[in-house]
Design a binder for these strands. Structure first.
Length: 469
RNA sequence: CGGGAAGUAGCGCAGCUUGGUUAGCGCGCCUGGUUUGGGACCAGGAGGCCGCGGGUUCGAAUCCCGCCUUCCCGACCA
């Protein structure tokens, strides 16, 4: 048993490894209806920490939370031509309710631009009402053809921000601000996930948007995962929902809107970006429990010390818990490793005789001996190091698996197991179609200096292409 | 939605080709005991609409049809 690994190794079968982790770390289960997901307490605790971190950042930009209905009249979707075309294939539609056929079918929201647009039109009269900055935390439903837990479920949880502005510039600047100050900051600092920031080519844009900014992360198998997107909607939705305001001169003007979202998919990204053959690796910032204190055996003196250490750690603002698992030491340790707890304190008689305990990092498996009165201080240092190292390691992995190429043919080859970087001019048009045959898409476009372009028509843009989830 | 694989105890699987009466195994679970410095061991025990529905048959986990669900590769997408 000891030599048989608990999980399918990543190198043997990455998708299988992913499923094993989701199941064995008690993150989620499949629901009874195709593509639905039961998020288990541990998975949900991680999601709650993500929510809290994202929500605080959203509020810092001035947006306020609200809640709009799950049910949307089907006719709303149809008001924006591209939007309805993009979403129709994946809609869940209610045709019967209360025992009768409905006069107008009701759509279960796949996203809320339409209902929110309708209410923005009611609420906005004057330029003084702008910008209107809204966000909601909600579930949405998209009937995807190939569901996978967290990455693509029929129903998923997310936040969707919707804003209306008096000018194009203000809208574009706000969408960009959300991307940098909310998503990028969160992904980097909390999830320890380096992301490529850039715009989507027209083929990958949100249905109804004039510009989409994305944050793309690399998973350990070299595939890309879109972690968050911000859209400039121009006046498309304002036109469809009559979001007019009176300007200072007293004339009616159409507002400019934005929308932006990040979902439970980020949990999947967290798993695949940091996890290893021993299980999940949760960065300290998102870890519901950062430190677990484990006694090596069930003895009263050990338990007492363990208990005291948890108190000390909590007092030092470290989220620590006492291990209440049963069974052998090895079993309990393995269970915590599968769940990816950042740091483990081991309390054993040999160490304790010298007034010390062992601290073990989940990410590197490094073990260090620490005096009892220094545990909290040392734990905080190690957690901070771990958070940094996870980011650095992810960045190093991405760079090692990103190849500069000079033709579509080379890109096709390089993107089999990583990202390929090449001139957008080489890809634009036919190149994109060629790549697509190899299941490779343009993940994002950047300027040569790595900054986010305003439009795909800027000269000398760089395209990152990859396989994606 | 196209191509492939699969659904038997909580998990992993055998049994199905060649239908036959009490459906097995490992892990997990429960009870008792010994253990606990990297998935412990012994003894006893519980647990099954064999995915769902229909058909063939004296008889179906096994053969046939339909559906549902899961996984993989695509197309669609957060």
């Amino acid at each position: 048993m000891a030599d048989e690994s608990v999980l399918t190794p990543q190198s043997r079968d990455f998708p299988r490894w992913y499923q094993d982790v989701v199941a064995k770390a008690e993150m989620a289960d499949n629901g009874p209806v195709r593509g639905t997901m039961v998020i288990r307490p541990y998975g949900y605790a991680i999601w709650e920490r993500m929510q809290a971190a994202v929500d605080a950042r959203i509020k810092a930009t001035g947006a306020k939370n609200a809640y709009f209905p799950l049910f949307i009249p089907e006719s709303y979707l149809a008001r924006e031509a591209e939007h309805v075309e993009g979403f129709s294939p994946e809609l869940a539609v209610v045709t019967h309710a209360g025992g009768e056929q409905l006069a107008e079918p009701i759509v279960v929201r796949p996203t809320s631009e339409t209902v929110i647009g309708e209410f923005m039109a009611k609420w906005i009269q004057s330029y003084r009402d702008l910008p209107l900055l809204l966000n909601q935390w909600a579930n949405v439903v998209r009937w995807e053809l190939r569901p996978r837990l967290f990455l693509r479920s029929s129903e998923f949880l997310w936040q969707e921000g919707h804003t209306a502005h008096a000018s194009y510039d203000d809208a574009a600047a706000y969408a960009r601000r959300i991307h940098l100050e909310v998503y990028h900051d969160f992904l980097e600092k909390v999830l320890a996930l380096p992301c490529l920031l850039g715009i989507k080519p027209p083929s990958e844009r949100f249905a109804g948007a004039i510009n989409t900014t994305t944050a793309e992360a690399m998973m350990k198998d070299g595939k890309a995962l879109q972690m968050a997107t911000s859209h400039e909607l121009g006046q498309n939705f304002a036109r469809a929902f009559d979001i007019f305001f009176q300007n200072e001169a007293g004339q009616a003007e159409l507002a400019h809107t934005t929308s932006w979202g990040a979902s439970t998919r980020m949990v999947g990204g967290l798993i695949m970006a940091h996890g290893d053959d021993r299980g999940l690796v949760v960065p300290p910032e998102v870890a519901p429990v950062q430190v677990v204190v484990v006694t090596v055996r069930d003895a009263e003196d050990l338990s007492r010390v363990a208990h005291e250490l948890v108190g000390q750690l909590n007092a030092a603002d470290v989220r620590a818990e006492l291990d209440r698992g049963r069974g052998s030491f090895g079993r309990r340790v393995t269970d915590w490793e599968i769940k990816g707890l950042p740091l483990r304190v081991e309390v054993g008689p040999r160490d304790l005789a010298e007034g010390r305990v062992s601290l073990v990092r989940r990410d590197t498996a490094e073990k260090s001996s620490v005096a009892l009165n220094e545990v909290a201080t040392r734990a905080r240092e190690l957690l901070a190091e771990c958070q940094r190292d996870l980011y650095d390691a992810a960045l190093a992995r991405r760079e090692a698996k990103t190849a500069d190429v000079t033709s579509v043919a080379e890109a096709l080859d390089a993107a089999q197991e990583g990202f390929a970087r090449l001139a957008w001019d080489l890809v634009n048009g036919e190149g994109e179609a060629t790549l697509k045959k190899g299941a490779i898409t343009v993940r994002c476009l950047q300027r040569a200096d790595g900054t986010i372009p305003d439009s795909e028509t800027e000269p000398d843009l760089v395209a990152f292409v990859a396989k994606s989830y």
